[in-house]
Design a protein around this nucleic acid. Sequence first.
DNA 1: GGGTACGTTCGATGGGTGTCAAAGCATCGG
DNA 2: CCGATGCTTTGACACCCATCGAACGTACCC
Lengths: 106, 106
Amino acid sequence: MSRQLPQPSRDSINLVTLLAALADPVRLTLMQAMYSRTGPVDCSVIAEGVEVGAPTVSHHYRVLREAGLTMTTVEGRRRVVAIRYEDLEARFPGLLAAVLTPTANT
Amino acid sequence: MSRQLPQPSRDSINLVTLLAALADPVRLTLMQAMYSRTGPVDCSVIAEGVEVGAPTVSHHYRVLREAGLTMTTVEGRRRVVAIRYEDLEARFPGLLAAVLTPTANT
DNA sequence: GGGTACGTTCGATGGGTGTCAAAGCATCGG
DNA sequence: CCGATGCTTTGACACCCATCGAACGTACCC
């Protein structure tokens, strides 16, 4: 079956915490990879192209989830992750698009 | 006369650096205070309502400027600061509004 | 059950950062 | 010229954080 990892409620998402979560090269890369796909994706798929070890990737996924950016469900021994589009759009309209659109990169 | 403190060019503004600059309570407060006003404002006016010492405020202004968020000019012994609206809008459209609109707060 | 795969947690380490007190440095006013 | 003002710089301190190696848990499969 599928469990659901704990995450903050929509209303308790903090802007500073959210920005701090995005202000890291690895986490921003992960978010952009998720944003370019539609719907939930396997964690390991997203983590390709990231040059850090597995424990570090796990740490970053946790930070993203605890900041309210992502939603993680456990399916067997895999983790499936998805961006919380609706919650984030309701709370900070336009933020995701402004930060994650490919145009925004160098 | 009025000097102009050094700042990154529009094209060299880095998203991660920018997000890191915004991911601090004091700096976000300063940015929101500037955003609610129109045009350049005296630094000390903005810094009211911030509960840190003068050296710390100076440090935060520097971080904002070096991240490309603000523009500081020296007028006599005062500093005048302004958000770089056009550069930021050209580089990351919608970002300022998404982060600094009062709706975004708790 | 035993082995393998996938992810997490723990402990340690190195670097970065927010904060302040004290000192420094221009600038304005008398 | 001299004191006061406004802000910066320096040095120090405490704290947080990204990273890794090693060990730990589960879940799948033969």
